[in-house]
Amino acid sequence: MSTDDKRVREFAYQIWESEGKPEGEEARHWEMARKLAEAEALAPKKSPKASGSKTPAAKPVAAKESKVANGKAGEPKAKAKPAAAAAKVTPPGEKAAAKKPGTAKKPPAA
Protein backbone atom coordinates (compact mmCIF):
# COMPACT_ATOMS: atom_id res chain seq x y z
CA MET A 1 0.00 0.00 0.00
CA SER A 2 1.46 3.32 -1.06
CA THR A 3 1.62 6.44 1.05
CA ASP A 4 -1.12 7.95 -1.12
CA ASP A 5 -3.41 4.97 -0.46
CA LYS A 6 -2.82 5.29 3.27
CA ARG A 7 -3.66 8.99 3.16
CA VAL A 8 -6.90 8.32 1.23
CA ARG A 9 -7.82 5.68 3.81
CA GLU A 10 -7.13 8.13 6.67
CA PHE A 11 -9.26 10.84 5.02
CA ALA A 12 -12.12 8.40 4.33
CA TYR A 13 -12.11 7.27 7.95
CA GLN A 14 -12.11 10.86 9.22
CA ILE A 15 -15.02 11.74 6.94
CA TRP A 16 -16.95 8.64 8.04
CA GLU A 17 -16.40 9.48 11.72
CA SER A 18 -17.26 13.17 11.27
CA GLU A 19 -20.61 12.23 9.71
CA GLY A 20 -21.55 9.99 12.62
CA LYS A 21 -20.40 6.66 11.10
CA PRO A 22 -23.31 6.23 8.66
CA GLU A 23 -23.82 2.99 6.75
CA GLY A 24 -24.01 2.87 2.95
CA GLU A 25 -21.93 6.01 2.29
CA GLU A 26 -18.60 4.27 1.63
CA ALA A 27 -18.35 5.16 -2.07
CA ARG A 28 -19.00 8.85 -1.41
CA HIS A 29 -16.51 8.92 1.49
CA TRP A 30 -13.79 7.23 -0.59
CA GLU A 31 -14.37 9.65 -3.50
CA MET A 32 -14.19 12.68 -1.18
CA ALA A 33 -11.06 11.27 0.46
CA ARG A 34 -9.41 10.64 -2.92
CA LYS A 35 -10.06 14.25 -3.97
CA LEU A 36 -8.69 15.58 -0.67
CA ALA A 37 -5.55 13.47 -1.01
CA GLU A 38 -5.02 14.68 -4.59
CA ALA A 39 -5.45 18.30 -3.55
CA GLU A 40 -3.05 17.80 -0.66
CA ALA A 41 -0.46 16.23 -2.99
CA LEU A 42 -0.76 19.13 -5.45
CA ALA A 43 -0.51 21.83 -2.77
CA PRO A 44 2.86 23.58 -2.70
CA LYS A 45 5.10 22.39 0.08
CA LYS A 46 6.44 25.11 2.38
CA SER A 47 9.53 24.80 4.50
CA PRO A 48 9.02 25.40 8.23
CA LYS A 49 11.13 28.59 8.06
CA ALA A 50 9.23 30.04 5.09
CA SER A 51 5.73 29.33 6.40
CA GLY A 52 6.40 30.72 9.86
CA SER A 53 5.15 29.04 12.98
CA LYS A 54 1.73 29.94 14.30
CA THR A 55 2.93 29.41 17.85
CA PRO A 56 5.49 31.93 19.03
CA ALA A 57 8.78 30.69 20.44
CA ALA A 58 8.73 30.26 24.19
CA LYS A 59 10.51 33.04 26.03
CA PRO A 60 12.16 32.50 29.39
CA VAL A 61 10.07 34.08 32.11
CA ALA A 62 11.68 35.83 35.04
CA ALA A 63 10.32 35.12 38.52
CA LYS A 64 8.99 38.69 38.76
CA GLU A 65 6.85 38.26 35.64
CA SER A 66 5.22 35.00 36.72
CA LYS A 67 3.52 36.29 39.86
CA VAL A 68 -0.07 35.21 40.37
CA ALA A 69 -2.86 37.13 42.12
CA ASN A 70 -1.83 35.58 45.45
CA GLY A 71 1.64 37.12 45.05
CA LYS A 72 3.69 33.91 44.91
CA ALA A 73 6.63 34.08 42.56
CA GLY A 74 7.53 31.23 40.25
CA GLU A 75 3.97 29.95 39.76
CA PRO A 76 2.40 30.18 36.31
CA LYS A 77 -0.41 32.62 35.73
CA ALA A 78 -3.93 31.20 35.60
CA LYS A 79 -5.20 30.53 32.09
CA ALA A 80 -8.07 32.63 30.83
CA LYS A 81 -11.40 30.88 30.34
CA PRO A 82 -12.65 30.69 26.74
CA ALA A 83 -15.32 33.16 25.75
CA ALA A 84 -18.90 31.93 26.13
CA ALA A 85 -19.58 32.61 22.45
CA ALA A 86 -16.72 30.36 21.40
CA ALA A 87 -18.20 27.47 23.38
CA LYS A 88 -21.51 27.67 21.49
CA VAL A 89 -20.64 26.44 18.01
CA THR A 90 -23.52 25.61 15.69
CA PRO A 91 -22.85 22.60 13.43
CA PRO A 92 -23.40 23.09 9.69
CA GLY A 93 -26.98 22.50 8.62
CA GLU A 94 -28.49 23.44 11.99
CA LYS A 95 -30.10 26.71 12.89
CA ALA A 96 -28.60 28.74 15.68
CA ALA A 97 -30.72 28.91 18.81
CA ALA A 98 -32.61 32.17 19.23
CA LYS A 99 -31.11 34.45 21.84
CA LYS A 100 -33.16 35.08 24.92
CA PRO A 101 -34.02 38.71 25.54
CA GLY A 102 -32.01 40.25 28.35
CA THR A 103 -33.66 41.73 31.40
CA ALA A 104 -33.68 45.49 31.71
CA LYS A 105 -31.48 46.85 34.48
CA LYS A 106 -33.27 48.82 37.13
CA PRO A 107 -32.03 52.33 37.80
CA PRO A 108 -30.55 52.84 41.28
CA ALA A 109 -33.06 53.98 43.85
CA ALA A 110 -32.78 57.66 44.78
Rank of each mutant, 00 (worst) to 15 (best):
M1T: 06
S2K: 15
S2A: 15
K6T: 07
R7W: 00
E10I: 11
E10N: 09
Q14A: 12
Q14F: 08
I15N: 01
I15Y: 06
S18M: 08
S18K: 07
E19L: 07
G20S: 01
G20A: 07
G20K: 06
P22S: 03
G24T: 01
G24W: 07
E25H: 09
E26C: 04
E26I: 07
E26Q: 14
E31T: 15
A33E: 00
R34D: 03
K35R: 13
L36S: 05
E38N: 08
A39M: 12
L42T: 10
A43Q: 09
P44Q: 12
K45W: 11
K46I: 05
K46N: 07
G52D: 09
G52Y: 06
S53L: 05
T55W: 13
P56D: 05
A57W: 10
A57R: 13
P60C: 02
V61L: 11
V61E: 08
A62S: 11
A62Y: 02
A63T: 15
A63W: 09
E65I: 05
E65W: 03
E65G: 04
S66F: 04
K67L: 13
V68M: 12
A69M: 14
N70Q: 03
G71K: 03
E75S: 15
K77V: 05
A78Y: 07
A78F: 05
P82T: 06
A83Y: 02
A83N: 02
A84E: 14
A87T: 13
K88A: 12
V89Y: 03
T90R: 04
P91I: 01
P91W: 04
E94P: 01
K95L: 02
A96I: 01
A98K: 14
A98I: 05
K99G: 05
P101L: 02
P101V: 06
G102F: 00
T103E: 14
K105C: 00
K106G: 11
P108D: 06
P108E: 10
A110F: 03
A110P: 13
